[in-house]
Structure formats: C-alpha cells, structure tokens
Write a protein that binds this DNA or RNA. Structure first.
Lengths: 240, 240
DNA sequence: TCAAAAGTGTTGCTTGTACACCCATGT
DNA sequence: ACATGGGTGTACAAGCAACACTTTTGA
C-alpha cells in the first residue's frame, strides 16, 4: 500500500521539521507486545509466534506489532488492534504489565521501546493465522518454556510477569469474566480458577469467599445436570 | 550545542533510511515523567513544575523530560537522568507506574507517549532549581491538588496513581528505606509510615508486624534519648 | 445401593486491631 | 511525682484453610 507509506513518511518529516528550530530528538522504535494466556488441557498456556525475520529469526516470541500513531488512539488501542490483526480477537480485557526499553534490543532500530499487555482468552476463540513475519503461532505451556528453545528478546521474563499478574488477580477473586462463559456452575468456576492458579482450592472456602464478595448470582430456575446431581447455574453479578 | 543537534538529526534520518525499504512508521514523541513524593510538615506532598512554554503554559505539571535515545540506556535510566537534571537527585529508588499515550496530548507532536515513574525522597535532599522551560518548582500537598488550578495533561490522575502505589507499598510494610534515614527508632519509623499513609497506626500491631517480617534489627549498644525514656535505635536488616 | 458431584457446617489457625498496662527518664 | 514516649501483653474479630458431613442424581 504505497499510499500509507507516503503519509507515514510525511509524518516523520513533519515531526522533524516542526521541532527543528528548538531541538531534534530521535524517538525510539515503539512496539506493543501481548502476552495472551489461556487454559488448555487443564494448564496455563501462552500464545507464541515463531519469528520469520531476523531479530531472533527462528525463535519464539510474544506476538506484537509496531505502534501506528496514524491509526491508534492509545497504547491500549494499539494492543487491541494487534490482537485483532494477529489473533482475530476483538474487545477483550487487556491489562498493561510494563513498559521496557533500551538500545540493542532489536537490530532494526538503535533504541526500542515495548509496552507489554496481557490478556486471558478462551483457547477456542483464537483463529490463529500466522501472518506477515510469522511462520507459526502456537500455544506453549507456561510452566516449561525452556523447551521450545529460549524465547526471543526478554520475553521469557514478560511471560512470567503475565502469569504472576493473572494468578494474583485470581487469588484476589478478580474473576476473568472475559475468559469465562456467560453462565457456569460453581464447580466449573472453581475448576477454571484452579487451572489458572495451577493448584487446587477448597470448595467451601471458595464458595464463602464468592458469597462474601457478591460476585455471582444464581440464574433463577436454571440447573445443569451432568451425570449426577444437577447444579445451580450462576452468572456474573453486575456491579452497581 | 550544535554538535548534539546534528548527531540527533542524523539518527532520525538513519532510522528512516534503514527502514525505508520495508515500512516507515512515524514514532511517538516519547517522554518520561516522575511523580516525586515526600513528607512535609506531616503530610504527603508532590513536586510540581510550573510550565513556562505552551502546552499548558502557566499550569502545574509533573516534571519530566524527553527520552534521549542517544544517552539513556533504559527507560528507568531516562527517569533517573531527569531526576538528576531537574532535582539534583542521584541513585534513588524508582518504580514504574504506567505508560500512557495518545494523539493530541501535546500540540508539539501528533502523538505523545509518557512513561511515568514515582519516587519517594526526603524533602531536604531536593536542590530544586527551576531550569529550562520551568518557571517554578514547588511541593504541593497531594490531598488538595485542585488548589493550584487543575494540573496539566492527565497529571492529576498520575499523582493519584503514585499516591496509591506508595500507600499500598507502606501498607504491605515495604519500607521506603531510600526515604528513611539509615538508623531510626521504632517511634520515628512508625511516624514516617503514618505520615505516608495519612492515618494513625496501632503501635503494638506495627511492631509485631515488623518483628514477624524480620525487616529491621537493633543497632547493638545504640540508644537515642529525647526528653524522656531513651529508645533503641534500629537499622534496616539486609535481606539474605 | 453406590459412585460422583453438589452443597453446608464446624474447627482451628493466622493476621491484624484495640486497648490496657508497665518501664525509663528529665523536669 | 508525673508527664511523656518507649515497649509489651492480652483479648477479640475477620478471613481463610482443612476437613467432615449431608444431599441429590443416574446408573
């Protein structure tokens, strides 16, 4: 798309020209990266992309993209756009983890800044389509990330941060309603939390904590019967 | 310094040229801002700068500066440099609060990104010297920031974040040893925490919590006598 | 009637608050 | 002696983990 290239280039020159009389500072190559987590077969996984091009070509890394100041209204919007382009996901909850930057992180630019977000999605909802500069896109279990060879850049640490953040949130019973189905039984909810945390929870404590916090409410007549005693179906109780 | 200008300009062109064959993206105008907190006369204050130039000229804002990719080895280093230049402070603990960005935050550029840090310093240590583009530099109490007229940009929210962050840390007994003198009595320590938090603490609870966590240790023979019963002097117990 | 999951109650630990009480010192 | 801050002990409440227990269903 040559048109976009031209407008982008013009913006660079504009910025340069406008500030030329006062002071000219080169700006960092700015990206957003997204650590996307999900639960597969009972354990936490993170979505990784196999890099096709040369900063760390052939290594796995968090999917991300360049900040587009001509299109993104905010950093979060940039992350959201990247999620949409790369994963076909719209309107999910994103949380900023950290911004990190320095020289020699990426040979394409002399100084790179990355703003890192995390999100939690149902695994099925991802329409993984390896696109430009990505050879492959896969879920990896967070608990042994050494296996697919070390991650590119400092992304191993970023994945750790994302996992800690999610687990801290679930520990505080900040339930990931974007990740959960609209309705669920308490057993299903507890199982989800256990899978996110990586350890078992006590049923009684879990239910009392839920009740104390007024987080969910029963859906009146609705029950869900598996093979055995049917369970009350719950839904998120909207905060007022 | 015309030499610096030339090298900076060259960097811009380098970046442009090197990426010209693949894609050219204009990058955001990138700054770091620092919310510097201290205790004055028993209550939390934040250091604000009176802006001389036009984005919000005449309004108070957090001191900050442009990221200099030719000089800063990391975002935190940039914040540290700004602290040094603006406040004459070296080597203090900084914590990243958030990165925020968008168009139309600053008329000088079409898109601005700010990475925000907070620090906690002893008020006396600041050699406040209003410098370039700053008319005045003053401490304002965080509890009524409406007084000096609304803060520039979204800095009121950033100050709130900094205050919440500091208070959360003190609540967890993450003691701000950079802020405290090297040795102190438990009474002094408790008073500092109370001033940071903005409310009183129970003496007995406070001491038991300190003891449980093994955070401080008595300096063997050392006592400090005010007008009345002398108190044991403590120091930080280095984590092992 | 039994397995399996739903759902409830009871105990006790841990953490922190509230508050009372002694201790040491200068005036 | 007493006022003042240093320092300690006890009682109580909240939050939560551990665990035992009852209930309801399909097979």
């Amino acid at each position: 798309m040559p048109l976009r290239k031209i407008t982008s280039l013009r913006s660079v020159l504009q910025l340069r020209d406008r500030r030329l009389n006062t002071a000219v500072y080169p700006m960092p190559f700015t990206r957003v990266e997204v650590a996307t987590l999900t639960v597969i077969e009972g354990s936490l996984h993170v979505l990784l992309a196999l890099r096709a091009e040369d900063p760390h070509a052939g290594q796995w890394a968090l999917p991300g993209g360049v900040l587009r100041i001509d299109r993104d209204a905010s950093l979060e919007a940039a992350a959201r756009r990247v999620m949409g382009e790369r994963l076909g996901l719209e309107g999910l909850a994103l949380r900023q983890l950290v911004a990190t930057g320095g020289p020699s992180r990426d040979p394409r630019a002399s100084w790179t800044l990355s703003v890192v977000y995390r999100s939690l999605v149902p695994a099925q909802s991802v329409s993984a389509s390896p696109g430009k500069r990505i050879k492959d896109l896969r879920w990896y279990p967070v608990d042994d990330l050494k296996e697919p060879a070390p991650l590119a850049f400092d992304h191993a640490r970023l994945v750790e941060l994302a996992v800690e953040d999610v687990r801290a949130a679930v520990d505080q019973l900040e339930l990931p309603f974007d990740f959960l189905p609209a309705t669920f039984t308490l057993g299903e909810l507890q199982l989800s939390c256990e899978q996110l945390l990586g350890h078992a929870l006590d049923k009684s404590s879990f239910r009392r904590r839920l009740a104390d916090r007024d987080l969910v409410e029963p859906v009146p007549g609705s029950m869900r019967g598996g093979a055995f005693r049917p369970a009350q179906v719950y839904r998120r109780k909207s905060a007022t």
